[in-house]
Design a protein around this nucleic acid. Sequence first.
DNA 1: AACTTTGGCGTATTGA
DNA 2: TCAATACGCCAA
Length: 727
Amino acid sequence: MAGALCGLWVDAAGRVLCTHETVGGGREERVAAWRPFAWLRVKPSVIPSGITVEELKGEGPFRFLAHGESLEVFDEFSSALGKEAAFDTPRPWESQFLLQRRERLYADLPFGRLRRCQLDIEVASPGGGFPDAARVGDRVLAVGLRQDGINHVLLLSSADDAAEKKLMEEFGDTLRRLDPDVIEGHNLFKFDLDYLRQRCRRHKVPCVWGRHGAKAVFRPSRFKVAERWLDFTRCDVPGRAVIDTYLLVQQHDVTAREMTGYGLKDAAIYFGITDETSERTYLAGEEIQRAFQEDPARFRAYLEDDLRETAGLADQLLPTYFEQARTFPTLLQEAALRGVTSKIDLLFLEEYYHARQACPAPAEVAPFEGGFTRSFREGVFRHVLHFDVASLYPSLLLHIGRNPRQDTLGVFIPLLRRLREYRLRYKHLARTAADPAERAEAHARQTSFKILINSFYGYLGFPGARFGDGELAAEVTRRGRELLQALIDAFTREGCVPLEADTDGIYLASEKHHQEPEFLLHRVANALPEGIELEYDGRYQAMFCYKAKNYALYDGERITLRGSALRSRGIEPFLKRLTDELIRHLLGVSPVSPLDTIADFRRRLPRREVPVSELARGESLSQSPESYERLMAEGGKPRRAALEAALQLPARPRMGERVRYYLTAKAKGRTADWQRARALALHDPEQFPYDPDHYLGKIDDWLERYGVFLGAAALPQGESAQGELAF
DNA sequence: AACTTTGGCGTATTGA
DNA sequence: TCAATACGCCAA
């Protein structure tokens, strides 16, 4: 019996090259058999030798299944069929192999036995400017590799080309000797690997970094983080997974949205790997080269701290994806880089393949209504309770119990049910297991199942999902709205005052029940259908209700902000400060009124005494500056201030990165924001001072919105206070 | 090159 | 000056 599969690669010839764990924890390489396959809409009139075609059971446009005896024969066959939609085959090939064999990577391999190697490079650029691997004067100073806590630091031996070439060869040798399953690094894709590739190419050193003597492959790719797309150069190292913690960190922050930055240093502090106050060696970009020459010990300490922090980030962020790779027929790197649709599709396709059932094509999805959202009151309220329905949409799906229309095999609901059972089992284990490593693993599993379960509803409403069903998704949200409305009515009958409701939860004020929310919970929860569970989620001294999806809570210790109006990252810091002061004031946390701060700003702004960094707004680029520039050159529109600012910067930011900018004074023919925007990094108080009037106007706008909550003193003329103080 | 959904707030651009 | 519209960012 072979040990766990911990590496997989299908080469160009169609050979399946596997790496298995051996009894002693080593790695051994093997070649496995595989028959490439595809689904077809029609039976080809001519079937070449080496290809078999079977007719499938059930309804669905893909009614035939073709197998090839080798990839070569199969490729020829598929190109002969042409590019029409008659042909559909799961990619990459590694997924197809796993699916065909019902195999998974890392089966029975604990996370602790995964061979993980951290990688970081240090480079020198002439004049201390921004590194650019294409420049002759640039140089790799050191390559750091760390595996199982042991550092392997490779240093440039002298300042000539031959030495850098030798360093590149040493890097390849060391990597192959360590033979990791996973290569981890912070910003690997956009920096380290791409830089190494360019230097290797210069010295004609092939990037043989993979298993089975294979070279790394590079190609442009994109990664979606919530609403943002990030551009990066993807690197595939055959037989290994490349994991970029820079991407994982950003993905993590989608839900939390509380990180101050995504660089290694910020992330390490945020995740508690490095204590903010404790020592770690740090070198600024321009100091690195000098330290390399004059203080080697310090240079090495810096590199090793980077490796340690990278390992720490992956310790926390990788297990979820590791568990995904054990769940889906997919590579670990794919699990970390791709969305949930392809993964769910693979689970379906695996069942359809083995059942020899005809496959559907993605269906049309008509626009449909979502969750119920309402802000009932505006102002400050006391004795606030929060209730929500546990896993509303998955519960409703199971309650409805209907499979997607095209799922003729009936895979969806049983799969969802099984995943939920698994999740509950691992959630329990995460609390009760004796061994801490086992608890951690159980936690990772339950987290990855939770993400998966929650995305089943979204999958149904997604037009690209092969087994999607917009009507079923619409049915789920419709029942969700009815349920929430029924809860609001029930709470109202109990004498509570609804404040804010959104999708699956409700905030309400009730002095009577504030001390005994469980009592209230039982009275209301009785009316709910089987399988739908209402939970008491928390109690608050005070709540500031602003508008729908925008509110602040105070539990006696901490303030929680919700909503883009109150906590958006793009907002100018000085306005954010006003809002924070307002909320602390309204919630009774601080006696200081923002009106004092406003008076102060109004005094200092005209003299430009407020630092520009307090005024600059930030925005992440939804487009690369280059493509924006091209579009504008062709007379495109609309113009955008953030992109205009990005174009000013010598080190052009890429799509998905943040740009901060401020506004300079109006001039003739230069009144629009985009014409006056200037990158914060290029602030020049003499040549390009900021425009105080613009920022004074922002304060007026702020008062327009929030003045009512501060009473008559703050109001523009003709308005009266509407904020109420109740209960 | 790649994609889970809808709902809501606030700001800027554009064109009249 | 005012609308329609697009976009960034966020809640669930």
